[in-house]
Design a protein around this nucleic acid. Structure first.
Lengths: 104, 104
DNA sequence: CCATTAAATGACTATATACTCATATAGTTT
DNA sequence: AAACTATATGAGTATATAGTCATTTAATGG
């Protein structure tokens, strides 16, 4: 039986990879089809498709079909909150390292 | 050169694993030494140590030495915000699936 | 100095992940 | 139906990850 801790790990894992972060950044302004996403992040179509499906399975993205095209979107706006918080931590860390350097 | 996207991925990766989530849950109330952590999460000392060092390297945890013991703590309170948001998303998803089941 | 306790690490194994190239599937247009 | 476009997937490779057991390093107390 899958524990709550595993569901949380699945969602976090779906966010924890550079290519997927680029996708999430690109989807910030709203849904996009695969054909728009993979050139924007400069990855192969097949690789992009796999990442999209993975994030879909983890409930990070939602998917909508329209004719030939498949549009992916960020499923929960809270995902963007998470991204903003993490970006904030990175900035704190980088500032902290600058302080260390200045002290030398 | 490491991109911003990679720093974000490192932090998220450090959170995205069941054993590490258990550690973070356990550290919610404050710092703990390794000797308290590994029995609490029911993992081997060596495995726990590796996960702790990994989270330290990713700036998720901080470390303090006191004699023989080494105390680890959550470095940024924002990490706990992230965890709460993700827990919220998991709950939304589980509720959503219950609704689906009821509809059958 | 020796024994003890706490934490980290080397060496290994098994599994998972990211990616690529080629191909398959599905929907569209003519 | 044939050609075309968009997306997904099979198969393979290379690397990363999580875990184990045994050992090492570091600090403390007798």
């Amino acid at each position: 039986m899958k524990e709550l801790v595993d569901f949380r790990a699945d969602i976090l894992k779906a966010l924890a990879q550079p290519t997927r972060l680029k996708i999430i950044d690109f989807l910030r302004d709203g849904e996009r089809c695969v054909c728009e996403i993979f050139p924007a992040i400069d990855e192969e179509q097949s690789n992009t498709s796999r990442h999209l499906n993975m994030m879909l399975a983890a409930s990070v993205l939602s998917r909508r079909k329209d004719g030939l095209k498949i549009y992916y979107a960020i499923k929960h706006p809270e995902i963007l909150e998470v991204m903003d918080i993490v970006t904030g931590i990175v900035k704190l860390e980088i500032d902290g390292r600058h302080e260390l350097l200045k002290a030398i």
